[in-house]
Design a binder for these strands. Structure first.
Length: 482
DNA sequence: AAAAAAG
């Protein structure tokens, strides 16, 4: 099943790559594609994913927006339409795209806070929004996107370059660079590119060094906005960047995107974009139907307290996982990532590990190898919990459950349900199948997973007797993989 | 403790 889906995917990809490059040919190819689209599924309108049915939109003021059923309804340039259909191979709009695109691309360009499920195409919304607002004949930044990690900034930039392939729009990443190629801010040239993707620290430094002119910014995006605006360490920088750019640009459009907005953040961001449009999803509706979640109980043995059963379970899961696609294993700490990597690679298991303490060259290399499909198993901290998009990932393993740090200090560990949701969202993207295994090494961890089940009103089945490989295999089969 | 950043 997964096999056939994959080959079909690959076929389409290959076909896309062999697209004739001459202007006439690719345009007629485009027209053909558009024709096909208008006869096939449009009566059904936007993708009717079961998981996407509960999106609620609140528009501000008396601006009337119509849902855009097709991208052609959006008054986009033909270069952008071509980018969507030919370079991106996007055929239909997802629900979040249908609801939000007019809000983003239509005057009076109101601010927007938009929540939608993991893997439902939020990036396409804001990247298309940015591209549509840019005048490529003018030099310098006209759109900016703030991200929580270097990896996400780079990934988003890659999406923009692909979607804007047939335009003259340029982009750059403002993220920390490796020590060898570091250039002090005062020595840098002024940013000439149209779009800047970056992390808060580097963006802020470029702005204060006057190397990043923000007066022509028309659209400012915060990806993973709830995180950027609520988490200490990000909050102050993000707010300052938003305030400065709003002032300098004379009131640019601000877009806040994330899969999660808890009640506290919701109240706060609604204040930030007071006159804006809002799209929210109920938290019970956020779990992905296509992703099957499991718990595996592997408590430490009283007779062998040093033996780590979790590692044993991992190896069993990887036996299957490596046959069907790529796997991401989440751990809580940097040291945990190092240790598990050592443990697995020592015994000849082919895997890599990434965490924030690695040097930048190494980080980039690990990500590239994984995105290229050269490595099948990636161990990571919550560095990759949000936003990381790799369609071949069909297995996620929570070696450790995400914990709210403050609750640890209080002595009663609570799970971080939002991080849990984001981790789960690394698989099952765009309606694909996926499976998540939660390894429970103690009574406390079992209790935490119960709290997660309660939070999402979604019960997670247990895989009994994991020592027998058949049971793990059956779980993977039940999730539609293999 | 993870994420960013520090030059």
């Amino acid at each position: 099943m997964a096999e056939s889906a994959k080959t079909e995917e690959e076929k389409r990809r290959a076909a896309g790559d062999e697209e004739p490059e001459t202007e006439e040919d690719s345009t007629s190819e485009l027209m053909k594609k558009i024709e096909e689209l208008s006869i096939i599924p449009e009566k059904k309108g936007p993708i009717d994913d079961p998981g996407e049915s509960e999106i609620q939109a609140v528009t501000s003021g008396n601006t009337v927006y119509e849902a855009a059923v097709k991208f052609e309804d959006l008054d986009l340039s033909k270069e952008l339409i071509k980018g969507l259909y030919v370079a991106m191979d996007i055929t239909r709009q997802s629900k979040i795209q249908a609801i939000s695109m007019h809000m983003i691309t239509t005057p009076p360009y109101k601010d927007l806070v938009a929540q939608a499920h993991n893997g439902s195409g939020k990036t396409t919304c804001f990247v298309l929004g940015m591209l549509s607002r840019i005048d490529p004949t003018k030099e310098g930044p006209q759109a900016m996107c703030i991200c929580p990690t270097r990896e996400l900034a780079q990934q988003n930039k890659a999406v923009l370059m692909r979607m804007g392939k047939f335009t003259a729009i340029t982009s750059m990443c403002a993220i920390p660079s490796d020590s060898a190629s570091y250039v002090p801010m005062y020595k840098r040239p002024e940013v000439k590119e149209h779009v800047v993707f970056g992390t808060p620290g580097t963006i802020k430094k470029l702005m204060t060094a006057k190397k990043l002119r923000t007066c022509n910014i028309k659209i400012l995006v915060f990806d993973e906005a709830d995180h950027m605006l609520a988490e200490s360490g990000f909050k102050d920088d993000s707010e300052r960047i938003m305030r400065d750019i709003r002032r300098e640009s004379g009131g640019c459009q601000v877009l806040l995107f994330s899969a999660t907005f808890n009640e506290t953040v919701k109240a706060f961001v609604s204040h930030v974009v007071r006159d804006g449009n809002q799209i929210f999803v109920k938290k019970e509706e956020l779990t992905l139907e296509k992703v099957k979640q499991y718990k595996v109980r592997c408590y430490r043995d009283r007779e062998h307290p040093d033996e780590c059963l979790k590692t044993k379970v991992i190896k069993q899961i990887l036996d299957f996982g490596r046959m069907i696609g790529q796997t991401i294993i989440f751990v809580q700490t940097r040291e945990g990532a190092r240790n598990l990597y050592k443990e697995l690679s020592k015994e000849g298991w082919d895997c890599t590990a990434i965490q924030g303490a690695l040097n930048i060259e190494h980080r980039d290399k690990i990500i590239k190898e994984f995105k290229d499909g050269l490595t099948l198993v990636l161990i990571t901290t919550d560095l990759l919990a949000r936003g990381f998009d790799q369609e071949q990932v069909n297995l996620v393993v929570n070696y450790d459950l995400p914990v709210v740090y403050e609750s640890l200090k209080r002595g009663s560990p609570e799970p971080d349900c939002e991080v849990y949701l984001h981790r789960v969202g690394r698989t099952g993207r765009f309606g694909r199948n996926g499976a998540v295994f939660n390894l429970l090494g103690s009574r406390e961890e079992e209790a935490m997973l119960e709290m997660i089940e309660h939070y999402f009103q979604h019960s997670i089945p247990k895989v009994d007797n994991w020592e027998d490989e058949k049971n793990l295999k059956k779980a993977i089969q039940d999730s539609g993989l293999m």
